[in-house]
Simulated assay, not measured.
Amino acid sequence: MQITMLSDKDLINSYLGGDEKCFQELLSRYEDKIYTSIYMFVKNTELAEDIFQEVFIKIIKTLRAGKYNHEGKFGPWAMRIAYNMCVDNFRKSKRRPQINPTEEFDIFDVLEVEDDNVETTMIKNETFSKIRHLIDLLPAEQKEVVILRHYADLSFKEIAQLTRVSINTALGRMRYALINMRKIVDERNIVLT
């Protein structure tokens, strides 16, 4: 059977049995979503890469220690680890001074998009930039739900579990985030298309 056809559980079992390629497959399935989510929280390429590596080191240690529970899905479990590490980093950074990076990272540069003509590409990039700016203007709890839903592709149930709130609270935060984004668009006469 091809390795790409195996379930997450089978990949984990094969990895624990000594097949390193199975972990590579598992990593490739989730690395884009996890890295993107981390970056959206920390807004620093180098820090995001460091946290991303720490996440997978923790995953490997947990798997090898036999502490991973197959009842939960691997993706949301890995995302929870990434989220918790971002929160830990945020708490630590509040205690020490921040240095702003000079390079600008654009998440849409790493996403796979069909080739468009130059004009369409420019319009899309401008629209994505405006949307990222709108997300940055949201209150922290609303911003968090938008990132987890649209960049990490988590369900509202998974978001609720990850952020330790009820599903209704997660849904409410998304609702208010959308309302606030529309309000900002109207107040500032922002054209998204």
Rank of each mutant, 00 (worst) to 15 (best):
D186I: 05
A65V: 09
N100R: 10
H133K: 11
V118N: 10
W77F: 15
S7D: 14
I60Q: 04
G75M: 09
N189I: 03
E25H: 08
M174E: 09
P101T: 11
I159L: 02
L47W: 02
N100K: 12
Y35W: 15
M181V: 02
V87F: 03
R164L: 11
R64G: 05
L137W: 05
D88S: 15
V110G: 07
S155M: 06
D106S: 07
V185N: 04
M5K: 15
F41I: 01
I135A: 03
K61T: 14
K58Y: 12
L154R: 00
E119K: 04
M5H: 14
L138I: 00
D106M: 04
F23L: 06
E20H: 12
R95M: 15
N13Q: 14
K9A: 14
P139H: 03
L137A: 08
A152S: 14
F108C: 01
N84S: 11
N84K: 13
Q142H: 14
N125F: 09
N89K: 14
R175F: 10
R173F: 02
M79G: 01
F23V: 06
I179E: 10
N69W: 07
Q98I: 13
I3M: 09
Y176Q: 10
M174W: 01
F23T: 07
A82N: 00
S93H: 13
T45I: 04
V113C: 05
N69M: 08
T163H: 04
S37Q: 06
S14Y: 07
V165R: 08
I179C: 04
H70S: 15
V145P: 00
L26Y: 04
R132K: 11
L63P: 02
N100E: 15
L63D: 10
L162E: 02
N84H: 13
I60V: 13
K143F: 03
M85Y: 13
V146N: 00
D19A: 10
Y15T: 02
R80V: 01
F56Y: 15
Q2G: 08
E31M: 09
A48Q: 01
I12L: 04
E187N: 12
T102A: 07
I60H: 03
R182Q: 13
E114L: 10
H133Y: 12
R96I: 13
S93N: 14
Q24S: 11
I57C: 06
S166Q: 05
L11T: 03
A140I: 15
L63N: 06
Q142F: 03
D153W: 04
K157W: 12
E126W: 06
M122G: 06
I135R: 04
K92Y: 15
R188G: 06
M122I: 05
I38R: 00
L138V: 02
H150G: 07
L63I: 09
I123W: 05
A152V: 11
F56K: 04
N13T: 10
L6P: 01
A78K: 00
M40G: 06
D32A: 07
T45A: 07
E71G: 13
L6Q: 08
E141D: 12
